Lab assay of single mutants.
Amino acid sequence: MTSCHIAEEHIQKVAIFGGTHGNELTGVFLVKHWLENGAEIQRTGLEVKPFITNPRAVKKCTRYIDCDLNRIFDLENLGKKMSEDLPYEVRRAQEINHLFGPKDSEDSYDIIFDLHNTTSNMGCTLILEDSRNNFLIQMFHYIKTSLAPLPCYVYLIEHPSLKYATTRSIAKYPVGIEVGPQPQGVLRADILDQMRKMIKHALDFIHHFNEGKEFPPCAIEVYKIIEKVDYPRDENGEIAAIIHPNLQDQDWKPLHPGDPMFLTLDGKTIPLGGDCTVYPVFVNEAAYYEKKEAFAKTTKLTLNAKSIRCCLH
């Protein structure tokens, strides 16, 4: 018999989150649709729960009410004593943790798909938090293969000092899905179709896995975050240069030392320094102006996964 890495157990509980950011409308629209008619997301033997994560922000069509829901799922915020004085999103995070967690427990949901849009030209993107997770690498390989020839990129946010504390991190297997470009507060049919297909293929993978299909060893190309880059700023902290036209919409493309990065209003080009080629992502993302992030630098690498098969009882 072929030796293989056996994944822990079959997958039982899956959640699909929309509206973690209330103005990213593809996930909101799909989740609302699936709450009314969820036939397309159901798979035999699998509990799939669509869920609106930040209903107040969705109602106002804004990213958040008090603070970013997708950055506060750490033990400090989840452990705060519940009171009306807490920011709305912290209270909501505790409610979500109660419903789908608790985080880092045996009772937490197996998989959470968190649906997002970006204003950046990132196409279909899967966000991975753990480079050693054979199950998710296999799932992402399946999704990428199923979507081809449509490109699907994998963004690895594993980093020693950049801690995200994402909404989906309460699950055993957290999956971020990011599709763009799409303006905030807008629905685009092409973007919706791409996100819908990503979810379909992900659920198909889980179904095949649960039925005992063995997935042979595989490898995927990923883009691992190195650092986030702020806009150049003046002495008052105001933005002093904008994304250069040569960099705009060039997510995932190589940016070499000396290539144009920013452009000042008086026409001066600010190039990339250093001696390493990087791959920019979230270029000129609207939501990241407040976070002082013009783009993120990534490096390209390959992740390998062992063969996996479900432990059938």
Rank of each mutant, 00 (worst) to 15 (best):
Ile72Trp: 06
Asn210Ser: 05
Ile16Met: 05
His141Pro: 00
Phe73Pro: 15
Arg92Phe: 05
Ser83Pro: 07
Gln182Leu: 11
Val28Ala: 12
Tyr164Ile: 07
Gly22Ala: 08
Glu129Ala: 15
Pro257Ile: 05
Glu24Gly: 05
Ile16Cys: 03
Gly101Ala: 07
Pro149Tyr: 04
Gly273Ala: 11
Leu25Glu: 04
Glu106Gly: 09
Leu247Gly: 03
Glu293Ser: 11
Ile111Ser: 01
His313Ala: 13
Ile225His: 09
Ala171Gly: 13
Ala7Phe: 13
Leu301Lys: 10
Phe205Val: 00
Met139Thr: 01
Gln184Glu: 13
Val154Ile: 15
His256Gly: 09
Tyr173Asp: 03
Leu312Ala: 11
Pro55Val: 07
Pro260Leu: 04
Ala296Met: 09
Lys144Trp: 04
Lys81Ser: 10
Glu238Asp: 14
Ile191Lys: 06
Leu187Val: 08
Tyr289Thr: 08
His116Arg: 08
Thr269Lys: 15
Ala240Phe: 08
Val229Met: 11
Asp204Cys: 01
Arg196Ile: 03
Glu227Gly: 10
Leu46Arg: 00
Ser131Tyr: 07
Ser3Arg: 15
Lys172Gly: 05
Thr277Asn: 06
Lys80Gly: 15
Val175Asp: 00
Asp74Asn: 14
Ala57Gly: 11
Asn304Gly: 07
Asp259Pro: 01
Leu187Asn: 09
Lys306Val: 13
Glu76Arg: 07
Ile137Pro: 00
His256Val: 12
Thr277Ile: 07
Leu69Lys: 06
Trp252Glu: 00
Leu69Asn: 07
Tyr231Ser: 01
Glu211Lys: 11
Val28Ile: 13
Val186Ala: 09
Gly258Thr: 06
Lys81Asn: 10
Asp190Gln: 06
Glu40Leu: 02
Glu76Tyr: 09
Gly274Ala: 05
Ala39His: 15
Leu99Thr: 15
Leu192Asp: 01
Ile16Pro: 03
Gly101Gln: 06
Ser146Pro: 01
Val222Ala: 14
Leu303Lys: 02
Ser83Ala: 15
Thr302Arg: 14
Leu147Cys: 15
Lys103Ala: 06
Ser169Trp: 07
Tyr109Arg: 02
Thr20Tyr: 03
Pro232Glu: 03
Leu46Asn: 03
Glu89His: 05
Ala15Asn: 02
Pro232Asp: 02
Pro257Ala: 06
Gly273Asn: 10
Lys200Ile: 07
Val281Arg: 01
Arg309Gly: 07
